[in-house]
Write a protein that binds this DNA or RNA. Structure first.
Lengths: 150, 150
DNA sequence: ACTTCTTAGTCTCTTCACGGAACTGACAAG
DNA sequence: CTTGTCAGTTCCGTGAAGAGACTAAGAAGT
């Protein structure tokens, strides 16, 4: 696809895109999240070409998002989320919320979340890490930070 | 890129990908978010090809994420976020948080957020919409929902 | 009236990424 | 020593992205 590399832009969105915004990557993370860890399993679930799956897995391992573990004396490997990768699941949860709200249609959401802490079926909401109040894009000012481009 | 369509999978992640996971789309939303609304302005900022920008804008307008508004008797148009689009900014904020933490390096984050409610420089955190407690991917059980595939 | 300027796109060509499917390699078990 | 399984690798054809020149529509200047 001859895609431009975003990673060298002074923007955390662009940099994050560089890690996981290739086609299929978020769905691969989803599969690993729900317990699919092996090449053939993920390939069959997604219907992705084996070539592209190889590329994506290598990229995600190289970025430190997934970890490749041998699970057998034979050349058999499983992919596991690293801490860095597990924190990316936040992104997937927010995508789920938006997709559930705007795209699920009358059939309703395909998956429900039950929160361990309260036991209820629920969804995520964005809050301020400092005061704990809800925080959406309209509730903030953007200021240049230390890593801003000159 | 001859990309597979994700939209018909019974998965809100896949459906959301179909709307905004084309290359550049999240960056276009970011630009509109921070106040860039015109074709040439976005094109110059991103360095995206004019052809691809046209395609992306049309797609985003078609999905109801952006709205195209005439701002002059001449054929001049601006792009604005719809409500549906504004809610997508949640996703960008979570991307920013992850990128700031894992990819910003020693230079620090390029942009800071100040929360109107408390006035502090802060970042987003995911909380349960029901009980208000923090909620990460490890804090939930996944259950099949009404729209689950058979 | 005619040229110039600005904005908002088209159009064309080249290159490279994706999809599909067959093939390979390593090892265990029968 | 053949068979089976998992985890890739290789090859080819198509089509999406990138670059940049070109076009359209109207206002403003001369």
């Amino acid at each position: 696809m001859q895609r431009t590399t975003f990673g060298d832009m002074a923007c955390s969105i662009a940099r994050t895109l560089d890690v996981i915004w290739e086609p299929w990557s978020p769905l691969i993370l989803r599969d690993v999240w729900v317990g699919m860890r092996r090449f053939d399993e993920i390939q069959a679930d997604l219907g992705i070409s084996r070539k592209v799956l190889t590329e994506r897995l290598n990229h995600l391992v190289g970025e430190g998002v997934l970890e490749r573990r041998k699970y057998d004396p034979r050349p058999r490997y499983e992919y596991h989320l690293t801490i860095k990768g597990a924190e990316l699941l936040d992104l997937l949860m927010v995508m789920v919320r938006w997709g559930d709200k705007w795209l699920a249609g009358k059939a309703g959401p395909p998956v429900l979340y039950r929160h361990h802490a309260c036991g209820e079926i629920t969804s995520v909401e964005l809050h301020c890490a400092h005061c704990g109040e809800p925080m959406r894009a309209g509730d903030i000012d953007l200021l240049p930070g230390p890593g801003a481009a000159v």
